[in-house]
Simulated assay, not measured.
Amino acid sequence: MSTSDEERRHREAVAALDAAVQRAGVRQLVQLERLAGDVLTQAAEVFGSRETAADWLMRPAMALDRQRPVDLLGTAAGKEQVELLLIRLQYGVYT
């Protein structure tokens, strides 16, 4: 197999991987839109995009005792905690 064939196969494999990640990201975003609703919109305003906001919602946050914001959205108190944190982040108030 020639080097150009290897390079082509590698590029195709990377393109397929990128497409798979994109598809998974779209599904995640759709699911988060259902779960988070207004909180996702608020987070998108803070972080600049819905994708970045979705990523933030899925990662543990130090300010939430290392809980994922998405896990707290099931209760009114948890949702309020996440919304308050987003307001604090938006205005640069971390304490």
Rank of each mutant, 00 (worst) to 15 (best):
M1I: 09
S2I: 08
S2Y: 02
D5A: 10
D5V: 09
D5Q: 09
E7A: 08
R8W: 10
R8A: 13
R8E: 11
R9K: 08
R9F: 09
H10I: 09
E12G: 01
A15R: 07
A15P: 01
L17R: 09
L17S: 10
L17Y: 07
D18V: 12
Q22Y: 03
Q22C: 00
Q22D: 09
R23Q: 14
R23F: 06
V26H: 07
V26E: 11
Q28E: 13
L29P: 02
Q31D: 12
Q31M: 09
R34P: 03
A36M: 12
A36R: 07
A36T: 12
G37R: 14
G37L: 11
G37Q: 13
T41Q: 14
Q42F: 14
Q42V: 15
E45F: 06
V46M: 01
V46G: 02
F47R: 03
R50A: 15
R50E: 09
R50F: 15
E51L: 15
T52G: 00
D55F: 01
W56C: 04
L57D: 04
L57G: 01
L57T: 00
R59C: 05
A61E: 00
A63T: 12
L64H: 00
R66N: 15
R66L: 14
R66S: 12
R66E: 14
Q67K: 06
Q67W: 00
P69K: 02
V70G: 02
D71L: 02
L73F: 10
T75W: 04
T75H: 04
A76M: 08
A76L: 12
A77N: 07
A77I: 07
A77E: 13
G78W: 02
G78F: 04
K79M: 11
E80H: 13
Q81Y: 03
Q81A: 14
E83S: 15
L84H: 10
L84S: 12
L85C: 05
L86A: 02
I87R: 08
I87D: 13
L89Y: 08
Y91Q: 09
Y91E: 13
G92E: 06
